[in-house]
Each structure stands twice: as C-alpha cells, then as structure tokens.
C-alpha cells in the first residue's frame, strides 16, 4: 500500500502547489473577440486591475453570445458592439447603465488584386453586390457577433440573400476569420481594430472598401442588472464602467496603436 499512498500524496501536493491562487476578487466580463484580438484589453485592463486589486476574467466570444451569457447572469459586465442588440438587452431588463466607450469602423478587406473590383463601389451594399455577382469568396463570421449583425444589415441593404459555395460561414471570432480569409484569399467584413492588429505580419489582405457612414462601429459597456441577478458584482462592474469611460481609460484607448495606427477612437466630450 505504501507506494500507492506515496503516489497519492505526491499528486495532492502537486495539485495544491498548482492551485495556490490568490484570493483577490474577480470581475467576469463577456466581450466581443475584437476587443481582445486587437490587443486593447492587454493595455486597458492591467491599470484597472492594479488599482482595485481585482482580476478581470475576459470571456471573448461574439457579441451575440456575449449578451446571451449576460442574459444568463453568468458575467458581471458586457462590453460589445451591436447597438440594436444592446438596447434590447437593456430594455428587457438584463442590463443597466449602458455607456458609449469608443468607436471605429468596419472595413471590407480582401486580396490586393481585388477580383470583384469593389474599390470602385460607392456604398458598402454595392460592394457586396459586386462580390456576390462575381462569386468571389466571402467569409462571414456566422457567429451572431456584432460584426456578423452588421454584415447581415449590409446584405439586406444590398437586397441579397447570400448563399452558395462562395459564401462561407465560419462561426469563429474576428481573428480566426481574418486568418481564414488570408488563407483562402477571400473578402470579409472586419472591424478596423482587429484588422490593424493583423495587418502586415499576419495577413496580406488589404482594405478594399472603407469610409462609408453605414460602416460605423460603436462599442458600449453595460452592467448586468443586479435586480435581476442579485449575485452579480454590480459595484465592481460600475467601477469598471467608470474607469473605461473615465479619463484614465479613455486616454489608454485613444493612445493604443497597432502598427503605428490608432485602433479605436473616443467620443469628444
């Protein structure tokens, strides 16, 4: 029995060592993949964590799923970008205190050769019509994220129900979709933040279409409603919201650059 017992003790000792985690508080945040994949959270979170002695647990998924996790009360705060869905989330009583945080815009990226010639398009909807007409490969997030929601709005505006072998629904985050589009030399709709973080080293795709008003991309932060879910860390969530919308957080966001270019923009007060 001795050796068996010895092995057990060794395992327990190892386990205890491995899990000697500190007892600091944790704030759970579900967010869109673009805030994480763009690298923003890596600079935005540490000052907040340090100041309040708290760890922010980031669950990076699509905006749709991030809101769903919030609707289940599994997180304390959500940080997403799909205004219509956000307003519904608040209206249905799941969230309170929605605040604007930052914005950038969506761009349509694709191969440098631009096979569908969308650089000549006047609107995003027209660009999509050209892609569909040409049957050029287009990769959709397909994950109910904010970007996906925007993309569907654009297809609707173009009057097209995208389907066919050229239209690929990936079901993945922004980063993986850019990687996939790069591999397939396909078009995709991306937020400028994530694209900037990928540009050059990880993707050779270029922006083929940009600058239309309809491509505006706004990010909002919402506390999960403590009246609905008494267990949520509402006070901490509010501290976080105050931080990212306050001067310190806004300064970090405005100053964050990827490859020398700003990724997100703050609203002028």
């Amino acid at each position: 029995m001795k050796s068996l017992r010895g092995a057990f003790l060794a395992i327990i000792a190892l386990v205890v060592l491995c899990s000697a985690a500190s007892a600091e508080e944790r704030l759970k945040m579900s967010t869109t993949t673009s805030t994480q994949d763009s690298g923003l959270l890596r600079v935005l979170l540490p000052p907040f964590e340090k100041e309040n002695n708290v760890k922010v647990d980031v669950i990076a998924v699509g905006t749709g799923q991030a809101l769903k996790i919030g609707e289940a009360g599994d997180v304390d705060v959500v940080f997403v970008h799909a205004r219509k869905l956000e307003d519904k989330f608040v209206a249905n009583g799941f969230g309170v205190n929605r605040r604007d945080v930052m914005y950038n815009d969506f761009v349509i990226i694709g191969p440098k050769s631009d096979p569908a010639g969308i650089a000549r398009a006047k609107t995003a909807a027209e660009a999509l019509r050209m892609i569909a007409a040409k049957g050029a490969t287009f990769i959709s997030r397909g994950d109910k994220s904010g970007t996906h929601v925007k993309e569907k709005e654009l297809w609707q505006a173009a009057g097209i129900q995208p389907k066919g072998s050229w239209y690929i629904e990936a079901g993945q985050g922004m980063g993986p979709v850019i990687t996939m589009a790069t591999e397939r030399q396909a078009y995709t709709l991306a937020d400028r933040g994530t694209y900037n973080a990928y540009k050059g080293t990880k993707t050779d795709l270029v922006i083929n279409f940009q600058g239309e008003k309809g491509l505006f991309n706004a990010y909002g932060v919402i506390a999960v409603n403590p009246k609905k879910f008494p267990h949520v860390k509402y006070d901490l969530a509010m501290k976080f919201i105050d931080f990212v919308t306050g001067p310190a957080g806004q300064k970090i966001i405005a100053g964050y650059k990827a490859h020398g270019e700003p990724v997100f923009f703050i609203y002028k007060k």
């Binding site: 647990d57 990687t179 990928y198 990880k202």
Partner: peptide
C-alpha cells in the same frame, strides 16, 4: 472555462485560439 487568459486558459484552448489568431 471560457479560455480566460491567466485563469482558465489551458494548453489546448490556447493552441486552438492562438492558431486561429495566426500566432
């Protein structure tokens, strides 16, 4: 686990994510 960096990110979830991101 939710693949939370420094908390619930394991070798396997990190591999899945980093590959997707091109890292």
């Amino acid at each position: 686990g939710g693949n939370i960096r420094g908390y619930t990110r394991t070798m396997t979830t990190a591999i899945a994510m980093e590959t997707g991101k091109g890292e």
